[in-house]
Computed example of a mutant assay.
Amino acid sequence: MYNLSDYRYNLPESLIAQTPCEHRSLSRLMHLDRRSHDISHRRFLDIADLLRPGDLLVVNDTRVVPARLLGHKPTGGRVEVLIIDYAAGMKHLADTGRFQCDCLIRASRRPEPGTVLELGQDITATVIEHRDRISVVCFNGGNDFLFRLKKSGKMPLPPYIKRDQNPGQGAGTPAQMDEQKDRQDYQTVYATAEGAVAAPTAGLHFTEDLLAALSAKGVDVVRITLHVGYGTFVPVRVKDIRDHQIHSEYFIVDEQAAEKINRARGAGCRVIAVGTTAVRTLEFCTDACGRISAGQGRCDLFIYPGYRFKCVDAIITNFHLPESTLLMLISAFYDRERILDAYKVAVDEKYRFFSYGDAMFIE
């Protein structure tokens, strides 16, 4: 269970969702029962029937920023810059007046330190240094940079979601229309805390009406924050997964949230994490006695089989990439072989996979 190859499965490319379900809560839902090992097939809307009065739903309220910038080098060659640690950039801005953080740079030839990049309308940036595959980039404009980023930046969709790379001219081009739609679709309805460079995708299935129905049933909702960064999606490049070093991501659990979670656990209520980002944050902040502490900082918890869960009782999640740390996490929560069996069923039943795909409820 520690070999990277233990987390492979076959997935037809046609099952990788390119767009979300037209109505969020009508996406499909696979229900896994960890006691009976039964698998049932539902719509996400049915989560209201599966949750119980007293359950506590923990959601990640991070909001995706348009962190992908297209432009060119001084030579005229094309360049793409992806901001991968927005939270660190905001801290650097507060401390120094300059937005500077780790980025990924795509170009025919990686620009040398000191190179000034032209990135969209009124944005320039200077390459500071390179560290392996990551580059440190400083953006011009101080606080004005944030306004320019929201205007010129593109949503940082995962590479398996294909979009027209030629923006064309005018607001009515297909690429422009895709971008505007993704700016809505690639956010949860409760996203408020700006800072993620990828969506906590399990939450994309919720609507305001569904949340209201859950509240009416007696299901409580609490918000925590984990600004999803590049680390969640870095490919595992070691044969033994225990040798993988996961990147850290910035989190916030406030006093009110911690108190509500501890109160629910003390009353014997289930704590249900919406997404692997919520799982990692909850488990990172929970002590050996099962009590969660408020705080903020960097979460670098890597969960894989053998991990003993201290807080989370059930998980709502999407279907994850082969050999990914996210697949390892849910394998730790249930059982690696049974999870892979469930994924085979999902393929046979033609579920839609990954960020814009269908969901799974493991209880």
Score class of each variant (00 low, 15 high):
Pro167Glu: 05
Pro167Met: 07
Pro167Thr: 04
Gly168Lys: 02
Gly168Asn: 03
Gln169Asn: 10
Gln169Arg: 13
Gly170His: 07
Gly170Thr: 02
Ala171Asp: 05
Ala171Phe: 06
Ala171Asn: 08
Thr173Met: 01
Ala175His: 05
Gln176Pro: 06
Gln176Arg: 11
Gln176Phe: 00
Met177His: 09
Met177Phe: 03
Met177Leu: 15
Gln180Trp: 04
Lys181Asp: 01
Asp182Val: 08
Arg183Cys: 05
Arg183Ile: 07
Arg183Thr: 05
Gln184Met: 10
Asp185Lys: 00
Asp185Gly: 01
Tyr186Val: 03
Gln187His: 11
Gln187Glu: 09
Gln187Thr: 11
Gln187Phe: 09
Thr188Asn: 00
Thr188Pro: 05
Thr188His: 06
Thr188Glu: 00
Val189Met: 08
Val189Asn: 03
Val189Ala: 02
Val189Tyr: 04
Tyr190Ile: 06
Ala191Val: 13
Ala191Trp: 05
Ala191Cys: 10
Thr192Val: 14
Thr192Asn: 07
Ala193His: 11
Ala193Glu: 15
Ala193Val: 15
Ala193Lys: 13
Glu194Tyr: 10
Glu194Lys: 12
Gly195Glu: 12
Gly195Arg: 03
Gly195Tyr: 09
Gly195Trp: 10
Ala198Asp: 14
Ala198Lys: 03
Ala199Leu: 15
Pro200Thr: 14
Pro200Ser: 10
Thr201Val: 15
Thr201Tyr: 11
Gly203Glu: 01
Leu204Thr: 00
His205Gly: 11
Phe206Trp: 11
Phe206Cys: 03
Thr207Lys: 03
Thr207Leu: 13
Thr207Trp: 11
Thr207Asn: 09
Glu208Thr: 15
Leu210Arg: 09
Leu211Ser: 05
Ala212Leu: 09
Ala212His: 12
Ala213Pro: 07
Ala213Tyr: 06
Ala213His: 12
Leu214Lys: 01
Leu214Ile: 12
Leu214Ala: 08
Ser215Arg: 15
Ser215Glu: 13
Ala216Met: 13
Lys217Gln: 12
Gly218Lys: 08
Gly218Arg: 08
Val219Ile: 11
Asp220Met: 01
Asp220Cys: 06
Asp220Pro: 00
Asp220Leu: 09
Val221Lys: 12
Val221Ile: 11
Val222Gln: 05
Arg223His: 13
Arg223Met: 11
Thr225Arg: 01
Thr225Leu: 09
Leu226Asn: 00
Leu226Gly: 02
His227Ser: 14
His227Val: 13
